[in-house]
Design a protein around this nucleic acid. Sequence first.
DNA 1: TGAATTACGGACTGAATGGTCCAGAATGGC
DNA 2: GCCATTCTGGACCATTCAGTCCGTAATTCA
Lengths: 204, 204
Amino acid sequence: MVSIRTNVDPRQPGGPGRPRGFSPEQALAGALELFWHQGYEATSLDDLMRSMGLSKSSLYACYGSKHGVLMAALQQYTDDFIASVTPLTASEPDPLRAIDQVLERMADVRGGSRGCFFINAVVELAPHEPALAEFARGHLARIEALIARLLRQSGLARRPARERASAAMALVMGTVMLRKAGVPRARLQAMLDQVQLLTRAPID
Amino acid sequence: MVSIRTNVDPRQPGGPGRPRGFSPEQALAGALELFWHQGYEATSLDDLMRSMGLSKSSLYACYGSKHGVLMAALQQYTDDFIASVTPLTASEPDPLRAIDQVLERMADVRGGSRGCFFINAVVELAPHEPALAEFARGHLARIEALIARLLRQSGLARRPARERASAAMALVMGTVMLRKAGVPRARLQAMLDQVQLLTRAPID
DNA sequence: TGAATTACGGACTGAATGGTCCAGAATGGC
DNA sequence: GCCATTCTGGACCATTCAGTCCGTAATTCA
């Protein structure tokens, strides 16, 4: 699992010196909001400072750069997603229904036309940033593995399970992108319903 | 069909005045290349002038703005795609195999990690630009209709045909995005192979 | 050839960019 | 209370941004 280094915790809480006047996580939430809406390039440092409630020097001391803020926000976003989706796999006894819930959560991404922050970041930046691309592949692999495991629990062999899991994920991500073009909710739902052809088809 | 207005042809070829020293289409091809690689915001006017081989005043006289260049490039890109994919539906007698070819062409998008210019533009700009979003929906609808028609030709009823066509398109677009994260070719192909579950499944 | 029209290069603009730096304030340990 | 340490606001920086404008060159038509 690829992690991202920042100076979010550069000192001991009991150490000397003036303590931080802000919560790094909370500031990151503000940055996430902005990056999510506007994208990376379209977001200026002034916007960022305002939405994070930080002065420029605090921002740089904590995150190193505008890019560092983005990576930290991305880390927080993906961690939150995994954390929110993992318990679903335990609470739902039917593995196929558990998959439905996981995919539904992926597809939803808290409504609106801003789509999914992870996807946005990959599309805008991954081709030029190997580190971000590698991080993204790690996140994708975790989701794939989670779905594939559920598919195997439902009785599917190892072989088609992984491929079908990936395909289901790709389908959902496709619909997330279509939402950004304003495709109506009902049409998106109709596409998402077709995922069952992937998860429930016999091996033929 | 939504179209995009520019001054690409502001005069008659036989009219008075000095004729253009460049081909608007060829210049647009240079712009497309750059936007495709870097995205809209990350591309500066200087980059653009260089890759289009145009001076700033010629660029503005012809396309109105940086944004005008993007829209014209997008129009050309989508037109090219439709033009390249339409004949496939006529030359291949088996409609299901025709769909395979259309989707393959969508998924390929001339290799590399830059993905699909249309998708890139939608993800980066559509949420903030209703005109672009509307144009995008029009393009998507054309592709959907094309695939759905082939599905009906293969004997599928109208009802599931459209939904399955949309879902297949979404799946392919999802894999295009995954390519930007550097997911290996073989994995992408394995996902794309699953499309057949959508196009060839019985109505159940 | 002269008039009308258009294309073009490049100087110019004001604003905004990401990032650095420093002086002073705040804090904890002793 | 004093010192070391750290935080923070804002001044400052060179660069770059998208876009405007004008003088000149090129071309066609009459």
